[in-house]
Design a protein around this nucleic acid. Structure first.
Length: 262
DNA sequence: AATCGGGACAACCGCATAGTC
DNA sequence: GGACTATGCGGTTGTCCCGAT
């Protein structure tokens, strides 16, 4: 099991990053780009492990990281995506340009959890804690999102990795979703030809460009959620409106050409 | 003014997985 | 095919800040 050797190195700093360390990291990545985190610390003159550098860059130093409060739209999107994906923070972050998984995770744990609880919604199951009869108007309008996953196409494949599928509570989640009628697929949303030049690591990550071979149409999840300028479909309605498409950005990076239904 | 408690957030840790040899 | 390495992800912890007492 791959415990990074770099993390076992003695003489590595821990704790908060100093301005000097930040500057070194920024300067190095500006000059050499991202990648090879293992060798980066020594090359950049940092007494940190590669993991630590990567985290610092991704969560804090990257120029396209959006700082500041979450908007109501972001709030709603996070809640909806969490209802669909569970604690898949990186996937959720992929739909919120400029936001990092760590940031969203923290925001969820500190703000949204409480917000949902105060509305009588269980943040893990997205179900009313005291039964459906107590559903409030906001819940009916979208905070509480029922999801249907057909048994044969359920979350399992891509969106649900081994860890999740081995989780008993998740099986329960899946079961509770079966009375709903929302099928979503992890599909390419833009053919490679249409893919815009990537202006930044984050945006290029968010705009996945996997193969389109199996793409048959549907509605982009972002559009369904109310985003007008979705990269996935450029706001264009997609034929076959009974299907909602969710595009997982990480597929591009990993070269996965799969279509998975959520 | 001091201190206590809770919230917010940055960072770390352990594990999973993909890639390489 | 197996061992090893690098990277990514999610959970957890540590620390700082701010408001209440």
């Amino acid at each position: 099991m791959g415990r990074s050797p770099c993390c076992e190195k003695a003489h590595t700093n821990k704790g908060a990053w100093t301005k000097e360390e930040d500057q070194k990291l920024i300067a190095y990545i500006k000059a050499h780009g991202e990648g090879c985190w293992r060798s980066l610390p020594s090359a950049a003159g940092l007494l940190r492990c590669g993991k630590s550098c990567r985290l610092r860059w991704i969560n804090y130093l990257r120029p396209d990281v959006k700082r500041g409060n979450f908007t109501e739209e972001e709030d709603a999107l996070i809640i909806k995506l969490h209802g669909l994906l569970g604690n898949k923070w990186s996937l959720i972050a992929g739909r919120l340009p400029g936001r990092t998984d760590n940031e969203i995770k923290n925001y969820w744990n500190t703000h949204i959890k409480r917000k949902l609880l105060s509305r009588g919604i269980d943040p893990q199951t997205h179900r009313p804690t005291t039964g459906a009869a107590t559903l409030t108007a906001p819940q009916r309008q979208g905070v509480f999102i029922p999801i249907t996953v057909p048994r044969d196409t359920a979350v399992s494949d891509s969106a649900d990795d081994g860890r999740m599928s081995s989780d008993a509570s998740h099986d329960e989640d899946r079961d509770r979703c079966l009375d709903l009628d929302l099928s979503m697929s992890l599909l390419p949303h833009r053919s490679p030809k249409q893919s815009p030049p990537s202006e930044s690591p984050t945006t290029s990550t968010a705009a996945a460009t996997p193969s389109t071979s199996s793409y048959t149409g549907g509605i982009c999840l972002c559009c369904h959620l109310g985003f007008q300028s979705c990269e996935a479909c450029s706001g264009q309605p997609i034929p076959n409106p009974c299907v909602f498409r969710y595009f997982r950005p990480s597929e591009e990076r990993q070269g996965i050409d799969s279509e998975a239904c959520i």
